[in-house]
């Protein structure tokens, strides 16, 4: 480590943290890699695609909100199992999850993404972007698919993906943190553990640089999601109020 800001950590500590984060990721990843890989051949048939496309816009929005919420519940469990997270004050736990849980869902999307067919696992089968047409947010969908594709091109191992997810979740520059320096130390340790793991796996330095570049892409994706939701809510306030999952509303409400 270098500079006053970097925490002093031993290799043992980094190894221990990496193990803890990998284990937490594997316990909460929602779908096992083998399950996902085995079902890549199961893509939606044309009539099934048309069935999604002919659903009323608000019904498809509700379905997607439910799926996102399910994925987020696993991310909350992931966060809870990361060493040090539950030692943060409750305000900061909430701040980090509010800002970062969807970002981790987008990162995890690459595990369920098939680059060959440009499809993602959704509602039991692999779906192309056309499945989501009725939502009326093609830009957001295309960006999410592009992000998953670019994450896949990095060929990260599950361990590396776990550490990158934790690094994103522990972002110390989120607004409204009360114990910013405590979060900063945790994030720095996670970054060191990620760096250590990349070196151990003999990945080049440029992988870390590429991953750091993803930070702003992820933030862009999430703000686009918020904007799209606001536009939807403006037209269908009662649908959101009465039919969207309470956790989704808590996270993205305002």
């Amino acid at each position: 480590s270098s500079g006053d800001m970097s925490p002093t950590v031993s290799m043992d500590e980094l190894e221990h943290l990496a193990q803890n984060i990998s284990k937490s990721h594997m316990e909460t990843c929602q779908y096992l890699q083998e399950e996902l890989q085995q079902s890549t051949w199961q893509t939606f048939l044309q009539d099934e695609v048309e069935c999604y496309q002919s659903k009323p816009k608000e019904v498809m929005w509700q379905l997607c909100a439910v799926k996102i919420t399910e994925a987020i519940q696993y991310v909350v469990e992931f966060a809870k199992r990361i060493d040090g997270f539950m030692e943060l004050c409750q305000n900061d736990q909430i701040v980090l999850l509010k800002a970062g849980s969807l970002e981790v869902v987008f990162i995890r999307m690459c595990r369920a993404f098939d680059t060959q067919n440009n499809t993602v696992y959704f509602d039991g089968k692999y779906a192309g972007p056309e499945v989501f047409k009725v939502l009326g947010c093609d830009d957001l969908i295309t960006s999410a698919y592009d992000f998953a594709k670019s994450m896949c091109s990095l060929h990260l191992s599950e361990d590396e993906l776990a550490l990158f997810s934790a690094f994103i979740l522990l972002s110390s520059d989120r607004s409204w943190l009360q114990e910013k320096s405590k979060v900063e130390k945790l994030q720095q340790k996670t970054q060191l553990a990620l760096q250590h793991m990349l070196q151990k796996h003999q990945r080049g330095e440029e992988i870390l640089t590429k991953l750091i570049c993803k930070v702003s892409t992820l933030r862009g994706l999430c703000s686009r999601h918020t904007e799209t939701l606001s536009a939807f809510r403006a037209v269908y306030p009662d649908i959101v109020r009465a039919h969207f999952p309470p956790l989704y509303k808590e996270l993205f409400g305002s």
Binding site: V76, E77, M86, E250, L251
Partner: peptide, 20 residues
Amino acid sequence: KEKHKILHQLLQNSTSPVDL
């Protein structure tokens, strides 16, 4: 706290993914 009732609950519960 009221504003983030469910998040608070999830953070306090000793849930596991199987329970979700």
